[in-house]
Design a protein around this nucleic acid. Structure first.
Length: 200
DNA sequence: CTAATGATGAACT
DNA sequence: GTTCATCATTAGG
């Protein structure tokens, strides 16, 4: 684990760049129950001036983690049912983050299946709420750096993966912004959107 | 398509 | 202090 991504990695990119550079990285959680890991195949960027961003208006206790240093986790509860996992990005106090939307399971798959209650590989981490469950992430991960000993990222093997840029999913505001990125052709993304026909 | 579900911020008194 | 609308989702039909 000598080559985990250091905090400098998260500091050197702006939010949109980081969202792209995180694709292909492996997210690892070494929990007491066992180790789980998955390749990040889908991300979304949330910027300061973006109406869909939690930090769009102002700093609150809930979104405080978004104003932390880059590389800090921001985990929050949504719809009373599921959690979403973000990695803070940009400069400290800017309130920007990258939402991890999907993983390709690579390690601890049995444990993921156990936690998710399904054996379908493609269904384990294909969505923000799902991957959080599969990886055993919970609210305690809020403020936890993703360069911790038991929770960290590994660099991608492919330096220049093919990345598709598209619109975000499941939000009502800022829905036309191209802030969603995923690895082209990967089957583990939450939803494969057909390419838009050329605008009239 | 819809229900389920809880935390939150904003807008009241 | 209380109430209400909102929310970056998922599962099930």
């Amino acid at each position: 684990m000598q080559d985990i991504l250091p905090k400098e990695f998260f500091e050197k990119y702006d939010t949109l760049s980081l969202a792209r550079h995180l694709l292909g990285c492996t997210l690892v959680h070494n929990s007491p129950e066992g180790l789980t890991a998955g390749i990040i195949v889908e991300t979304e960027a949330y910027l300061q001036n973006d109406p869909a961003c939690h930090a769009y208006r102002k700093k609150t206790p809930r979104n405080a983690a978004m104003f932390e240093k880059p590389g800090i986790s921001y985990v929050y509860f949504i719809y009373g049912v599921y959690h979403c996992f973000n990695i803070v990005s940009g400069q400290k106090d800017t309130g920007e983050a990258v939402l991890i939307r999907a993983l390709e399971p690579v390690d601890g798959i049995e444990l993921m299946q156990q936690r998710r209650g399904t054996t379908q590989l493609k269904n384990l981490c294909s969505g923000p709420g799902k991957l959080v469950t599969a990886m055993g992430i919970n609210r305690d991960f809020n403020f936890l750096p993703v360069y911790s000993h038991h929770f960290y990222c590994l660099p991608p093997k492919d330096e220049n993966p093919e990345i598709v840029t598209t619109t975000r999913i499941g939000i009502t505001r800022g829905a036309d912004l191209l802030y969603r990125f995923y690895l082209k052709g990967n089957q583990f993304v939450s939803k494969i959107v057909k390419e838009k026909p050329a605008a009239p």
